[in-house]
Design a protein around this nucleic acid. Structure first.
Length: 773
DNA sequence: CTCCTTTGTCTTTTT
DNA sequence: GACAAAGGAG
């Protein structure tokens, strides 16, 4: 009878548990979206929950769109009232109503993307006299971003600096950056979340209204939430505590963006009454593919133990191919795809995944050569193209005159001969009168020293005024058209770019088309909503493989997708795992890479091919990379094709850890690796021969990493286990048993115990905490 | 103010 | 190898 009949028992239990906190640990391909959508349908249809009271939060628009569609299908009428949205869209919606309560912001705020943030930071550094050679804007921005992810305010950050000079610099930059954004009535991506948290904390009445509205909350991809998002969710869920989170700690791959894997690992601590349900049946891949994925991920520590299984049968072995260079790798992959399609297949059943976007190029070239249709997912965002950003900046200036980043971008584009000197004079004037830049520009004729520039500035101000006046009649698309015409933008593009002017003009037209499409679909079209979509939607969201094309994308973009045939290209130490993660000596970074490998492997339904190149151009120089350690972590019996030399734990020495770089500075180095030397010279640094500062900490950390590698057992579980095969041991949960096998693995000892009451179990020594009897 | 050459950087990137 | 930013010359 019910909606839940089509679910397996565990899925059904998860879907029917609607009261109280619930953690669904959903392995790759275990039907997580299906479970969530059925849960929502069950609530509405069989438990009489008002759709209005349900919130489902995702990370990507794509995931939100998919869920929206499936909920609509299952629920039918009334489903529109369910909020299915991304974190950012949810928060923007809340801020558009209430941000003015925080003071200093107005509800027509701009949203700054990464480029805009850089622009702001550059200005901040200039203003504060921060030496750009000593501090990169990227570093400062990422420090600020991480502070915001952790809900650390400017004041708190300032208090925590103590004698730390670098932190003090960051604190100054943080304060000025935040003040600049506020002056511009703008928020960045991180602000969207943490200002909402701030709003809830400072205005309990607002929080309460949303708590009452969202009685049932779902969070997808919970493993990727950061502290701010966690706080947001826990505030919202605090009243009714009906919080359902879904995730897979093994697929947490966004630590570098502030995701905190502890949120999912510690869910039961935060919510002691929580119910935990594991979905371990995989409906996607063959057993061999799952075995390989399980074997790789088992080398990680920080994870909840689980084992994916399938009833799909063993399937085919995983293929491994090491080519001489990256060209041959591309050739191998493309030829393989072509021959498989000739034997009856469709190009849309194939995906090539890689670690870095730069790897796409060679494969693309080969695909073009063979006339195979393909799509590259990601790479450069449509909205980050200069010509698109120009028009967007005009629109932002029309919407929000305080937006300085937008204003400065267009003030002299196309060239109006308003240069740095004139802008400086306007700035001074604005400072004295406490005006915004745009306000000051309206008094150009009064500003001393502008001379002829004053008239040109007035012309510009007038243009914006006219655009504002016409907005209501013309709408968004009409205003875009008017901008293009008034500034002769297409002519400007033609003059400025000789090579690709036509492409750029096309992009501008595409933006116009998007605006038209937006106006057709929106209930109540507005400029700020259009700008919001532009800021929050990426072209990743439009990935569609209905038209028979091979898909190329990074491993990160591939999360959540599945393909019958998957190629993982560039399986090399130094590329994947990345050079950074190896050289940092930080185990956590390496574990994140390993999770990425896990994500990659589990994208494959039937056929998985791993490829590597012995020699590859990276950053303009030839690198000789060793086969990725992740390939070596896959049991030999699952691999087909050329098999790399197997490595035992003890071979994970320095030359291996920083593997593959030997050839860059002379052969024979790897034969009898002198440990210190191997650590100190992992790689021939940039061609200009300068050893960057990173080398020093690198050496220090490298040595400690080496130390850690050398005494893995110690790190793993406080030394080698004190029991051996044949010994009797006791386990907290399973009771007494006999040790039947003890295998030393890179990170830990794998111990098999035949328990008296529960039969044989395989476990990792550091987790099992077995006591010798 | 603008154009051209030199210099430095370079993982991933849901929003 | 590719691209952006800074610095110097016109």
């Amino acid at each position: 009878m019910g909606i839940l009949d089509r679910l397996n028992p565990m899925q059904r239990e998860a879907a029917s548990t609607i009261e109280g906190p619930l953690l669904i640990l959903a392995g790759a391909g275990s039907g997580k979206t299906r479970t969530l959508t059925h849960r929502i349908a069950y609530m509405i249809h069989e438990q009489g929950v008002n759709p209005w009271n349900i919130l489902a939060i995702t990370f990507t628009n794509k995931a939100a769109g998919e869920m929206r569609e499936r909920v609509d299908d299952l629920v039918g009428g009334g489903a529109e009232a369910v909020w299915v949205m991304t974190f950012h869209a949810t928060c923007v919606r809340i801020l558009r109503r209430y941000i003015d309560l925080l003071g200093g912001y107005d509800t027509n705020f701009s949203i700054y993307d990464t480029d805009d943030q850089k622009t702001v930071m550059k200005a901040v550094m200039k203003k504060l006299n921060i030496d750009p050679k000593q501090y990169k804007e990227r570093t400062l921005l990422s420090a600020i971003s991480h502070a915001k992810d952790d809900l650390i305010s400017v004041q708190e950050y300032e208090r925590s600096t103590f004698g730390d000079f670098t932190k003090a610099v960051i604190a100054r930059a943080y304060r000025e950056y935040q003040e600049t954004l506020k002056r511009s009535n703008a928020v960045d991506f991180d602000d969207i979340i943490c200002l909402t948290v701030e709003l809830f904390q400072k205005h309990p009445e607002v929080l309460e209204s949303y708590q009452n509205r969202f009685r049932y909350i779902h969070v997808d991809e919970y493993q990727d939430t950061n502290l701010a998002q966690f706080k947001l969710i826990s505030l919202l869920a605090d009243r009714y505590r009906n919080l359902c989170v879904v995730g897979d700690d093994d697929q947490s791959i966004y630590k570098f963006r502030g995701a905190n894997i502890r949120n999912i690992l510690d869910f039961e601590q935060h919510y002691p009454e929580a119910k935990v349900i594991k979905l371990e049946q995989n409906y996607r891949s063959t057993q061999f593919i799952l075995d390989a994925a399980n074997a790789v991920i088992h080398n990680n520590y920080a994870r909840k133990d689980k084992a994916l299984w399938t009833d799909r049968g063993e399937g085919e072995k995983i293929r491994f191919m090491q080519c001489d260079n990256a060209y041959e790798e591309a050739e191998y992959i493309v030829d393989d795809i072509r021959s498989k399609v000739r034997n009856g297949g469709n190009y849309n059943q194939f995906a090539v995944l890689y670690r870095t976007n730069a790897q796409a190029r060679l494969i693309e070239e080969r695909l073009v050569l063979k006339g195979i249709p393909y799509n590259v997912v990601g790479g450069t965002n449509f909205y980050s193209r200069a010509e698109v950003k120009d028009i967007i900046a005009y629109l932002k200036t029309v919407e929000n005159g305080q937006d300085e980043v937008a204003l400065r971008r267009i003030i002299n584009v196309p060239k109006r001969s308003i240069g740095a000197a004139s802008i400086g004079k306007i700035e001074d004037y604005a400072e004295i009168r406490d005006y915004t830049l745009f306000q000051a520009m309206q008094y150009a004729s009064e500003i001393p020293g502008l001379g002829k520039a004053a008239a040109r500035i007035e012309g510009f101000v007038n243009l914006i005024r006219v655009l504002r006046a016409g907005l209501e009649d013309l709408g968004v698309s009409g205003t875009i058209r008017k901008i293009i015409d008034s500034i002769d933008y297409e002519e400007y593009l033609q003059d400025t770019y000789d090579e690709d002017a036509d492409d750029r003009i096309e992009n501008v037209e595409e933006l116009y088309n998007k605006a038209v499409a937006y106006e057709e679909s929106a209930e109540e079209p507005s400029l700020h909503e259009f700008l919001e979509q532009v800021a929050l939607v990426s072209d990743l969201d439009n990935v569609d493989n209905g038209d028979g094309r091979v898909l190329l994308m990074t491993l990160h973009s591939a999360k959540g997708l599945e393909f019958p045939n998957v190629y993982l290209a560039g399986m090399e130490d130094g590329l994947f795992p990345s050079y950074m993660s190896i050289s940092s000596g930080d185990q956590e970074e390496l574990e994140e890479e390993r999770r990425l490998a896990y994500v990659g492997i589990t994208r494959a339904m039937d056929h998985l091919t791993l490829t590597a190149a012995k020699m590859r151009m990276q950053h303009g120089e030839t690198q000789f990379n060793a086969v990725s350690r992740f390939v070596k972590e896959i049991p030999t019996e699952l691999l087909d094709g050329y098999l790399p030399a197997r490595k035992s734990r003890d071979d994970y020495d320095s030359s291996e850890r920083f593997g593959g770089y030997e050839s860059s500075y002379g052969r024979g180095f790897g034969e009898a690796p002198e440990r210190k030397a191997a650590v100190a010279k992992p790689r021939a640094f940039g061609r200009r021969g300068s050893a960057p500062e990173t080398v020093k900490p690198f050496i220090a950390q490298g040595v400690s990493a080496l130390g850690a590698a050398g005494i893995t057992k110690g790190v793993a579980g406080g030394g080698a286990p004190d029991y051996a095969v044949g010994d009797r041991v006791r386990h907290v949960k399973f009771g007494a048993g006999t040790v039947t096998a003890l295998v030393s693995e890179p990170r830990d000892y794998k111990v098999t115990v035949d328990f008296d009451a529960h039969g044989p179990k395989v476990m990792y020594a550091s987790f099992a905490k077995l006591v010798k009897l």
